Simulated assay, not measured.
Amino acid sequence: MFTLLVSMAPVLAAAQPVPDLGPEVEPPSAEDFSPLPEDLPEEGGQVVVEETDPEEEQSRLDQLFADLADSEEPKASERAAREIQRIWMESGSDTVDILMSRAGQAIQAEDHALALDLLDVVVVLKPSYAEGWNRRATVHYMREDFGKSLVDIERTLAIEPRHWGALSGLAIIQRRLGFDTEALHTFKRALEVNPGLENATEAIEDLEKKAEGAPA
């Protein structure tokens, strides 16, 4: 997958304009980025990065991912997905949390330049924080800067290969650039991680029909 990201880079430069997304694949929107709570404590101008116990967090995530993949009850799956996303948002740093909150506000205001400035600091302060890379990848995507988005998706998946948001983003970009076979594979991988992704299910059905020569 990561080799594909690199090999796609020369294509990106000549890929404009790109075709519009079909209705079965929804790109991110500002509404997807509600800011974090406003009552996060300030640290008096000092950068504070607190590391969580990686083994404990990994154990929690592994169990939640197992619940997400195996549960036959939609509400239970939704709870597991929400809990995973909550853990993903935990940076372990009040400073990074504040920056992420401000970036979310900037995205909602469609101030992508400010959002990128804030997220640039996030990934420098906490390079092991997958959600910082993922959110920056999404802002690059919203600006249609697919090359930079792919680079940040790669960093996200290097930290958390099960990040279904990053996998879905990769699949959407692959599809927009005409890499249908690769997009199909990536959508399937996202669906394996989170079977509740309706957009991925619809995209897979559409791509499989297209591969069989049937009308999409």
Rank of each mutant, 00 (worst) to 15 (best):
D97W: 02
E90T: 06
Q108E: 03
E110L: 14
G104W: 02
L99W: 07
A109M: 03
D53K: 11
E78Y: 13
E90G: 07
M100Y: 10
D111E: 03
S101H: 00
K75C: 02
D111Q: 07
Q108D: 03
D70F: 07
M100A: 08
L64M: 08
A81M: 05
Q58R: 15
A113F: 01
R79W: 06
E110F: 12
M89E: 13
D70W: 02
I107T: 02
P74M: 06
A106D: 04
S77E: 14
I87E: 03
S71M: 11
E55P: 02
Q105R: 11
A113P: 00
A113C: 02
A109C: 03
A81L: 09
D94H: 04
D94G: 01
D111P: 05
T95H: 01
A80S: 14
G92E: 06
A103T: 01
A80T: 14
E57D: 03
V49Y: 09
K75R: 14
M100E: 07
E57Q: 11
T52L: 05
P74T: 09
Q58T: 15
E73C: 12
R86K: 15
Q63K: 12
R102M: 03
E50G: 10
A109Q: 12
I107R: 01
E72G: 11
S77Y: 11
S93V: 01
S101M: 01
I107D: 00
Q58N: 13
S77N: 13
M100G: 04
S59N: 11
